[in-house]
């Protein structure tokens, strides 16, 4: 019981200290989970992190589930995940209410209009980093361009692109093996 509570609290702490997401939380995980608690080794954390990046969902949640599961089975995985989302729930809910009340003020509108420009740039930067790792040869370039154009000009759910491209990956790799 005590250990479950410890999992929850430690992950709530990690949630508070994470700003942004993805790679930014890795040093915090190393400090809390590997150095302080000894819940996993550095190598295990790296494995979890690598798998968390390529499985569905939020990376922070995926690693939390892994470590929680390693300590205390399924219930540990669930509690660690609840821990990591708790700070977001509290902070965002409070902020959303405050912003809703003040969003009509000109100064707030102007600030957000400036921030929107910044977000365009931040998303662009994030995409370029991702693209470098994902678009590595001709077939992946074709997939990237097709999905980009398809997603801009067709009104279909992104789910279809995910399913089809996964299938395309398997077919392309299989053909490559046969060709050799």
């Amino acid at each position: 019981m005590k250990e479950l509570w410890d999992l929850y609290i430690t992950y709530a702490k990690i949630g508070v200290m994470t700003f942004g997401g993805g790679i930014t939380m890795l040093p915090i995980l190393q400090r809390e989970v590997v150095d302080h608690k000894g819940w996993a080794t550095e190598a295990e954390l790296m494995d979890y992190y690598a798998i968390a990046q390529c499985t569905p969902g939020i990376i922070a949640v995926n690693t939390a589930t892994f470590i929680g599961h390693k300590r205390k089975g399924a219930i540990g995985g669930i509690l660690a995940t609840l821990g990591v989302v708790t700070p977001s729930l509290i902070i965002i809910t409070l902020l959303a209410e405050i912003i809703r009340r003040f969003s009509h003020l000109p100064v707030v509108e102007n600030a957000f209009a400036g921030i929107q420009v910044c977000l365009c740039v931040l998303i662009f930067d994030a995409v370029m980093k991702l693209k470098k790792k994902a678009v590595i040869d001709k077939p992946t370039t074709v997939i990237y361009i097709l999905v980009l154009l398809g997603s801009v000009f067709l009104r279909i759910s992104p789910i279809w692109f995910v399913l089809l491209s996964g299938l395309a990956g398997v077919l392309l790799k299989n053909r490559e093996v046969k060709g050799k």
Binding site: L130, S165, L172
Partner: peptide
């Protein structure tokens, strides 16, 4: 194999949103 196809698609989807 699945992720070979999935990664560029994910980059494409976020690019389109961008």
């Amino acid at each position: 194999k699945v992720f070979y196809g999935l990664r560029p698609a994910s980059a494409g989807l976020i690019s389109a949103a961008c």
